[in-house]
């Protein structure tokens, strides 16, 4: 990435275009976590590149270039989202902020086996992957991520969709490893629950 940056500073337009292309998918995805429309996300990406260019001399190379760019984008997207919907309260879903991430009714509540599964999870096998091709599950997954808290949404997207390391995500969000894990845990548990509920509906039709 240092090569790209050097090219950039030398005014190499092709190098810059490569950089824009290399990061477009991640930037759009990250923007869409906070703004509603694709057009708004495109504006956020545009605004980000302007801010990147204006601030390029301040890039010290302590974080990776992509982390630095995405942090700028995140600030712009968050600010925009804040202006749009300050009054919308955060989801009061179970397990959103604290408490168990699996419905306590799934466990035996008393006796020698307390805390063990009463309704154990079943094995999914290849079923979700096969259903993913049909598209409905794909949409459902997107909705599930959008319904998470902003922090959970950012962590699960960067870790599991984009495949960033926990170190990078901590740098991006300026949070600790421990906090990152808590957000990831709650987010994954929530999405798992959505998939499970969907698969149950699939196997028990017409109810």
């Amino acid at each position: 990435m240092t090569v790209d940056l050097a090219g950039l500073l030398a005014g190499d337009e092709d190098a810059f275009r490569d950089l824009v292309r290399a990061h477009q998918a991640t930037m759009m995805r990250l923007a869409l976590l906070h703004v509603r429309s694709v057009a708004d996300a495109e504006e956020v990406v545009q605004e980000t590149w302007l801010a990147v260019l204006q601030g390029i001399d301040g890039f010290e190379g302590r974080a990776s270039l992509r982390t630095w760019i995405c942090r700028i984008l995140l600030n712009i997207a968050r600010r925009r989202a804040g202006q749009e919907s300050r009054s919308v309260p955060m989801s009061g879903l179970p397990g959103a902020d604290g408490g168990p991430t699996v419905d306590p009714d799934r466990f035996i509540s008393a006796g020698p086996n307390a805390g063990h599964w009463s309704v154990p999870p079943r094995r999914w096998g290849r079923q979700p992957e096969d259903l993913l091709l049909a598209g409905e599950l794909r949409e459902l997954l997107g909705d599930a991520v959008r319904q998470l808290s902003p922090g959970q949404r950012e962590v699960i997207t960067m870790r599991d969709v984009e495949g960033w390391t926990s170190t990078e995500v901590c740098e991006l969000m300026e949070i600790s490893e421990g906090h990152q894990r808590v957000l990831l845990h709650r987010a994954r548990a929530r999405v798992r629950q959505t998939v499970e509920a969907y698969l149950e509906r699939q196997s028990s039709p017409a109810t």
Binding site: R21, Q24, M28, L32, E42, P128, R138, G142, V161, V195
Partner: peptide, 15 residues
């Protein structure tokens, strides 16, 4: 499995 499913999320291209 959940993590694998997320990895397959579609993306948007910049026009």
């Amino acid at each position: 499995s959940t993590v694998r499913l997320l990895r397959a999320a579609p993306g948007h291209r910049l026009p």
